[in-house]
Amino acid sequence: MTSDKKYAALLRGINVGGNKKVPMAELRTVLEGLGHAGVRTYLQSGNAVFASARTDPDALARELEAAIEAHFGFRVPCLVVEAAYLRAVADACPFPAAELEGRQLHATFFSAQPGAERFAALGGTGFLPEEFRLGDRVVYLYAPDGLGRSKLGEALARPAVVKGFDVTTRNWNTVVKLVELTGPDSP
């Protein structure tokens, strides 16, 4: 398994309000059934890490979506990202993550790089003190009162911004934990 790459699977919209229930033990079984090793889950909101000899994250995501649909009977959008990408996202954070609470900082992951023009209408000072920055297939969002109260977070989720992409958001605590779980020292 030493040549296997580590990945994180980010599932969108499961276990929220009693909808699309995906027990983490069953998700681990689905991932193991696809031949992945070292499968672990984090929280109940659709975060899993695994190792695979395969090297195409998009193909891994489509395969996982199909397996989830076959197992649970509903479609769940999935993003699969490499451990090195997760580390790069954490390292490139334009906000002082160490000084903020995890609920104040979020990363919205995109399936491909969105063009800056999608975000042009959201610039300026209209959302202050909330701010966002565009990164590599990620939007960093600073929302001092949390995502649930964030007007900017709401605007960043509008179809004009996200249409044509699979997207999912994680708070900074989850990003940090996924970096740790996919790191070189993790099993």
Rank of each mutant, 00 (worst) to 15 (best):
R118W: 02
T108A: 09
G124T: 06
G135M: 01
A107R: 13
E130G: 04
A121Q: 05
F110T: 15
E117L: 08
E131I: 07
F132M: 07
R133P: 03
G135N: 03
E117W: 06
A116V: 14
G115Q: 13
F119R: 02
F127R: 08
P114N: 10
L128D: 11
E130C: 06
R118D: 02
F127T: 07
H106T: 07
G115E: 14
L122R: 01
A107F: 12
H106I: 05
G115Y: 02
L128A: 14
A107P: 11
H106W: 09
F119E: 02
A121W: 01
P114G: 08
G135F: 01
G135E: 03
A116P: 11
G135I: 03
G135A: 02
R118V: 02
Q113R: 12
F110W: 15
L134M: 08
G135K: 03
E131Y: 03
F109G: 10
A112H: 14
P114S: 10
A107E: 13
G115H: 11
A116K: 12
S111F: 08
G135V: 04
G126D: 10
G123A: 12
F109L: 14
A112C: 12
A112P: 11
A120H: 06
G135W: 04
T125C: 00
P114Q: 09
E117R: 10
H106C: 03
A121P: 00
G124S: 07
E130F: 02
F109Q: 12
L134T: 03
F110S: 15
G126K: 10
T125Q: 10
E131C: 09
H106N: 11
R133G: 01
G115D: 15
G115R: 13
A107C: 15
F119A: 02
G135Y: 03
F110K: 15
S111H: 10
A120W: 00
T125G: 10
E131R: 15
G124H: 06
F110C: 15
F110D: 14
A116W: 00
L128N: 08
A116I: 12
A121N: 00
A121F: 00
L122E: 00
P129S: 09
F127P: 03
L122I: 02
G115F: 04
R133S: 10
P114K: 08
A107D: 11
Q113N: 07
G124Q: 06
E131T: 13
G126M: 01
P114Y: 07
A120S: 09
A121Y: 00
G124E: 06
E130I: 07
A120N: 00
F132S: 01
R133H: 09
H106L: 12
F119D: 02
E131F: 03
F127G: 05
R118H: 02
G135Q: 04
A116Y: 00
G115M: 07
A116E: 13
F109K: 13
P129Q: 08
D136G: 06
E117Y: 04
G124R: 06
R118P: 01
A121I: 00
T108V: 12
A121T: 07
T108D: 03
Q113F: 06
E131A: 13
A116L: 11
P129C: 08
A120I: 06
G115V: 09
F109A: 12
G115W: 01
P129N: 08
A107N: 12
E131H: 09
L128E: 14
E130W: 01
E131P: 04
F119Q: 02
A112K: 15
G124N: 06
S111Q: 11
L122W: 00
H106D: 01
